[in-house]
Write a protein that binds this DNA or RNA. Structure first.
Lengths: 194, 194
DNA sequence: AGCTGCATGTAACCTGTTACATGATTAT
DNA sequence: ATAATCATGTAACAGGTTACATGCAGCT
């Protein structure tokens, strides 16, 4: 089984979901398109890691609601204690940054400023989600607090990191300015410069 | 052309490299294995984006040193001004965290502590690289300062983010402790709690 | 004698994205 | 009208990893 499979297991371990719902739900854990999720759900169901029942709805199409089985839980438990592989990060922004930031000052600025606004946007929309989670929390009992708290810590992690990247962007923006004004006389390569 | 191709172009735009060297060099920009890089270099050379000359060495095997062509530079310049796609992040740690952090306290702690030590390790080794870059810088003229400074800002970015993640890990570690002692009485879902 | 680093390449496989396909309901 | 949301699925393709394959130099 691949990592997406385990992501699905850990999501369903909290609450049963349809494939459609999982697309949203997995966004924080391990983003995937529906075209990848649906076939995997079928495979996992055939392996006995999941079960589903078809739930008919009024005013909208019926759905397959998947739940984790005991076998599924065991599989997840075994995997969870193995040490995780290195995170995979691929970011076009870094390449573009690397390419333009000295040779093309205007585009460098634009690139960084755009990045800042995208990050700020994400931070605010994530904060909204957190507020939403709070409200839902208040209407529920204590038992459910723990279930969604995992998402909360992941959201706050992302926000922390995004905010830190915004600081970095502003630092870079300052460097670009300095570069122009001070004729760039051998910068001291020190972290403390920040 | 794919993003790896552009990453190669931007790397070679700084200085000519062999495929073998590119594996290391691209690690910060867009990590790739040699099995992906070698065939791409051949394709790009055939398209006229790159040229190479075979350089024989003493005491080690000869290598193909690739350089960017004017066509290659044009291709890169066009791509660089387009707004970058969203970064791709996939991290098993997050799934494992999500799964264990409430149900299995011991493993949750271990998971986070391991993460901290890996991050700390990376931060220190990156700082060493920066020191190395400084020393190399001092022996070179002003012209080359700019060439490696791009790497410097990317390294410092990563270090900043990794350090921030370490803080987050410590915050989570505290939450786990609290959970045990305070019977977890409905935590207030506020960011300010940090 | 065996491991690490330098150096290049191919083949098989897995993972993930884009596009094709369908269809009802609700909001603008 | 037409776009968006809910809902599921497949097929073709692109991107990336693992494994196979070779070979020399230098170190332990």
């Amino acid at each position: 089984m691949n990592t997406l499979g385990y992501a699905i297991l850990s999501a369903l371990d909290r609450k049963p979901c349809s494939g459609y719902q999982l697309v949203d739900y997995l966004e924080v854990l391990w983003p995937a398109k529906h075209s990848q999720i649906y076939p995997l759900l079928t495979k996992m169901e055939q392996k006995g890691l999941l079960v589903y029942k078809y739930v008919e709805q009024i005013g909208r199409p019926g759905k397959k609601v998947f739940s984790i089985t005991d076998t599924g839980k065991e599989t997840l438990d075994k995997w969870v204690v193995e040490s995780p592989t290195d995170p995979i990060i691929r970011d076009e922004f870094l390449i573009k940054m690397y390419s333009v930031w000295l040779t093309d000052e205007d585009n460098a600025k634009k690139l960084v400023q755009d990045r800042i606004s995208i990050l700020e946007q994400k931070v605010t929309s994530r904060e909204k989600k957190i507020v939403k989670m709070e409200k839902e929390q208040e209407s529920k009992g204590l038992d459910n607090v723990s279930k969604d708290f995992g998402r909360y810590i992941l959201y706050s992690r992302r926000n922390l990191l995004d905010k830190e990247e915004i600081s970095w962007c502003n630092w870079v923006l300052n460097l670009v300015k300095k570069k122009t004004s001070e004729t760039f006389d051998r910068p001291s390569f020190h972290l403390s410069e920040k």
